[in-house]
Design a protein around this nucleic acid. Structure first.
Length: 765
DNA sequence: GTATAAACACTTTTT
DNA sequence: GTGTTTATAC
């Protein structure tokens, strides 16, 4: 293979980082410096130099990154070769290894992966069972503590013996966390289930207790590459260290300035201390930013310079200066939504940008709603990443729970979800009795169900019959596991369980959309099978394979149509992505930086890195927006602009004329003064501000003054707005109020039938 | 056992 | 304000 021309496309430091592939390497890759390119070419180069693809282990942070890299490597060396690369997230790669070695750590190869909502509901149950006060033991906090312990390789047993941790728990009024942790681990094992953190912890335990297994994988993985190394936690660090022990061909890529996951145990020290771990390491710095204009890069540099703890580097851009970073000021959060959307509107028409050239980035998911509403109002298509994902929806989790139970009937969390859905007359008392029995036998719900005759005194004949019916249903589907592929079996289960019928009969708009979601999930399974077959035509794609995949999916991975859309996501989710125009919104004190991360300088530094990540997503324009007041939990709060705005060198900023005034009063904490001041129009940048005022007035009068009898006034041909489906035209009406049904042709989601008394429709015109 | 209403927590970020 | 969990009546 001729690599000459590929290498010649790289700059000097990139070339060095590709060609020196032996031994430990640290690649410091600044934002937009062509990191993915270097990684892909380096892997292709390894293969061109005789390394077998299956000897390469490449660990990424997201599935998406892995997929894209595999594709790009495929383009360089051919898909046939790229197929055999071990490339994926830590979680997905090691979940697969754990399937193969499951018996060595007390699981079966069909083990279930619990997502965080499974974990949370299990924790809630344990708190109850241990008679602990649910007010002092919040499930989220408890799970967080357990998660942190696991990421630091502290098992339940070790936790119980750790006085320091227990001391801390006493100080925070949760002295019994170690008991919850023990019980949680026990029940996970009984359910043959692992949570996300277990996947990494158990790999460590596997390697520790089975030197032959460890040695097998050490031999196999001759070359190891880790992307986003600054965001690895201790558990991941130890795995990587162990695996690279033999060959020492370890390459880590990262940027300490973009370390933003310490809240979930990531240790920036891993990248800072690489030099101590591997003494004869090679260091490569990629400092030229190919993504952004000079102004954006310089602004970001001036901000991150405020952080003390970092590896020295000079990120620079050879592009034009470009526009300064514009600062937008709004009086309220709602006005901020309109400001930003209006600005997007102007930019896209004025400068001919596509909607897919825009991203709105926020600190917390809850901020998305206001922008969604503003975008819908202007009929601008958008895509929301994160938040309640598709896979978290009730109906989806219900069907997935059936699939999980058929693959692993010991999965008690899944059984509890579906044992009475669709309704089969098995109520809470029955489930309670089953759980008590299971606890007394230290076994799963399923094993109680199988031995129901031993507990016949606890359940009356009718109940027993119903339970047996459920057991038979599951068993019947289990026998199909070998014959049917994932799609056919899932389809059959959806059908025979009555889920499809139940949702089909529910004609409320919610029911209709649930039905469609189930259809979409089934289509997704079918698609999964097809892509797997493309990779390997002989592969049997059964339910277990699908479930493993779906457990580790996020909605960043969802496929999408080709309609250009604005992207809405948290700053965390935007890492690794780039957009021509980036709006960073809600840039206020106590929001960004977050109130919860303002305690120590260390936390502030992480928030600053997060802000750095946000700015450096932009290629042409970065726009920062803040509001002077914002609704939180129902009531209004006054806000001040974020300290980060004033930490950027002002020569790269385009400030609103009234910013200084606000800053001053903010410092004096007399923000009310400036708030009450009447702004001169909505935005001093927007020429269409008259238009804009109109928008605002419709908005304020809409949902607030919404009359319940409004729906009765809907007539044929009206344009209406639905909270979820957006704008649509009424094309048919039938039956008398309150049974009136309307057929509405929605612009984005097509024709739908809605019952007027349920559908929250707003008359637009 | 089920359907409805009231109470409750939730908001920092995610594999 | 929202979605989920518990209390109450049927």
């Amino acid at each position: 293979m001729d690599f000459e021309h590929i290498l010649n496309e790289l700059n000097d430091s990139q070339k060095q980082a590709v060609a020196n592939y032996q031994g430990p390497s640290l690649i410091i890759a600044g934002a937009g410096s062509g990191k993915t390119k270097v990684l892909t070419v380096r892997i292709a180069y390894l293969i061109a130099n005789g390394v077998q693809p299956w000897q390469i282990l490449a660990l990424t942070f997201t599935n998406k990154a892995a997929r894209e890299m595999r594709e790009r490597i495929g383009n360089l060396i051919g898909d046939q070769q790229a197929r055999y690369l071990n490339m994926g997230t830590f979680h997905s790669i090691f979940a697969k290894i754990l399937r193969m070695e499951a018996d060595k750590i007390g699981h079966t190869s069909n083990y279930t992966i619990y997502d965080s909502s499974d974990s949370k509901s299990l924790i809630r149950k344990i708190i109850k069972d241990l008679h602990l006060d649910p007010d002092s033991y919040k499930q989220g906090a408890v799970l967080g503590r357990i998660s942190k312990a696991k990421n630091n390789l502290v098992t339940a047993k070790a936790y119980a013996n750790n006085d320091k941790l227990k001391q801390f728990d006493r100080e925070t009024r949760m002295p019994d966390i170690y008991r919850i942790y023990q019980e949680y681990s026990k029940r996970c094992k009984q359910s043959d289930a692992m949570d996300f953190d277990d996947l990494l912890l158990n790999i460590n335990i596997l390697f520790r207790d089975n030197p032959d297994v460890a040695s097998h994988y050490q031999n196999r993985f001759k070359y190891i590459l880790v992307d986003e190394y600054q965001d690895t936690n201790l558990s991941q660090y130890i795995i990587v260290k162990k695996l690279s022990e033999l060959h020492q061909n370890i390459t880590v890529v990262g940027d300490d300035a973009q370390s933003i996951y310490s809240f979930r145990g990531a240790k920036i020290e891993n990248i800072l201390n690489f030099r101590n771990d591997y003494k004869d390491y090679k260091l490569f710095k990629l400092e030229r930013n190919y993504r952004s204009t000079k102004n954006i890069v310089n602004a970001a540099n001036s901000l991150i310079a405020k952080n003390k703890n970092q590896i020295q580097k000079k990120i620079y851009s050879e592009k034009d200066s470009g526009n300064k970073i514009k600062i937008l000021r709004a009086n309220t959060d709602i006005e901020e939504g309109y400001n930003v959307v209006s600005h997007i509107f102007d930019l896209s028409y004025g400068e001919n940008y596509k909607y897919s050239d825009f991203a709105i980035l926020y600190r917390t998911n809850s901020q998305s709603r206001i922008f969604e509403e503003a975008l819908r109002k202007r009929n601008i298509p958008y895509k929301l990443y994160g938040g309640t994902s598709f896979y978290q929806r009730k109906e989806i989790k219900d069907l997935l729970s059936y699939l999980r139970v058929v693959v692993n009937p010991n999965d008690s969390e899944a059984i509890k979800r579906i044992i009475n859905y669709p309704k089969r007359g098995i109520g809470a008392t029955t489930v309670d009795k089953l759980e008590t029995a299971a606890a007394s036998q230290a076994s799963s719900l399923w094993s109680i169900l199988l031995n129901l005759h031993n507990f016949s005194s606890s359940f009356n004949a009718g109940t027993q019959k119903k339970l047996m019916g459920f057991v038979r249903f599951i068993q019947e589907k289990m026998t199909e596991l070998g014959n049917l592929n994932a799609y056919d079996l899932a389809q059959k289960i959806a059908q025979d369980s009555g889920i499809l019928k139940d949702l089909f009969l529910d004609k409320s708009p919610e029911g209709v959309s649930r039905y469609e979601n189930i259809k979409e999930l089934l289509n997704g399974i079918n698609e999964f099978i097809e892509t797997e077959k493309e990779q390997d035509p002989d592969a049997e794609v059964g339910l277990p394979k699908y479930l493993e995949n779906v457990a580790l999916l996020t909605d960043m991975d969802a496929k999408d149509d080709d309609i250009p859309k604005i992207s809405l996501m948290t700053v965390h989710a935007s890492k690794g992505l780039e957009y021509k125009n980036v709006f960073i919104v809600g840039v206020e004190q106590n929001l960004f930086p977050s109130q919860m991360s303002s305690g120590s300088e260390k936390e502030i530094e992480e928030e600053r890195r997060l802000f750095y990540v946000a700015i450096t997503r932009a290629e042409h324009n970065a726009i920062i927006s803040y509001a002077m007041s914002r609704r939180k939990w129902g009531n209004f709060n006054m806000c001040n602009p974020s300290r980060f705005i004033s930490e950027i060198n002002p020569e790269f900023l385009d400030m609103p004329s009234n910013f200084n005034l606000i800053q001053k009063s903010a410092n004096q904490e007399s923000i009310f003064e400036s708030f009450n001041e009447k702004p001169k129009g909505f935005s001093n940048f927007n020429k269409k501000s008259t238009n804009f005022g109109k928008f605002k007035s419709t908005k304020t009068s809409s949902f607030k003054n919404f009359k319940p009898d409004n729906a009765q006034n809907i007539t044929l041909g009206m344009t209406v707005e639905h909270a979820r489906f957006g704008l649509g035209k009424v094309i048919a009406l039938e039956a008398e109020w309150p049974e009136t049904k309307a057929e509405i042709d929605f612009k984005t989601s097509g024709k739908r039938q809605l019952l007027l008394k349920f559908a929250k429709l707003k008359i637009v015109e």
